[in-house]
Amino acid sequence: MSILIDENTKVIVQGMTGRSGTFYTDLAMRYGSDYVGGVRPGKGGGRHLGLPIFDTVADAVAETGANASLIMVPAHHAADAMIEAITAKLDVVVCVTERVPQHDMTRVKAALQGSRTVLIGPNSQGILTPGACKIGVMPTKDARQGPVGIVSRSASLTSEVLAQTSAANLGQSTTIGVGGDAIHGIGFTDALRRFRDDPETKAVILIGEIGGREEEDAAAYLQSVDYGKPVIALVVGRHAPKERRMGHAGTLSIFGLETADAKAKALRDAGVVIAEHADDVVSCVKRAMADA
């Protein structure tokens, strides 16, 4: 089992015919994911990588029965692409595109209101259910099926922690990158809720960092429920000089950046096990699972 995507997920790619679109679609198909078509306005009727190309997402859905999309279009088209996918009622939409203007997200968020779509990203590495489906650009070499759910703000740390869990014979149920931008789709709390409902997920790793309110919101959620499985968190940026913006696009707050220590404390108070460093996440997971 897994969350959001599995072996039955049918994926289309918006922007498949571009260089990155071609490369990552090919990799995901080789991984065994069920990719069923691509969208490129003006190229409908053609074929690419052996798959049919459509002018619109609606056409692609009608023809192929797709229920998920991978968006790999340039930043200035990304908002329209996300809105088109949301309007076509896809279940999962992953936007990998970096540097999407923040004001464009106003329209995207409005389209998400009341829709059935879960948006992942933008500026996300995507979502991976090992052995079943990959929608994104993350490496799969070290991924194994298993009991650990991962939700993260950082692609590089997800790869790092995922490799460590696999090396310790702890595979993953699903890994999700919420994206590095301040304004994004699915967040920690929604991901935690879904991992809680997934019987195969036995523990959840949350990878956070300075800035934003993701970690505080997750802590408030965990305080409000009996979560029932261990949650282990790594919050990086403890020693980032506070006057300099380091890390992701982060978050603008007129009342200053939220510190890593404050976030770790909020999570610890909510019963989360805090890993001090990137290389002791797995030992924390093992201990927490043994205690559970």
Binding site: S154, L157, V236, G247, H277
Partner: peptide, 25 residues
């Protein structure tokens, strides 16, 4: 490579008593 791994590395260096000359992503 990557902002998250960069922040994690910076934390580890400082905790080990080191002084990073830069942050790089």
């Amino acid at each position: 490579n990557g902002a998250g791994l960069g922040l994690a590395t910076n934390d580890m260096l400082v905790d080990a008593g080191g002084k990073p000359a830069n942050f790089m992503d």
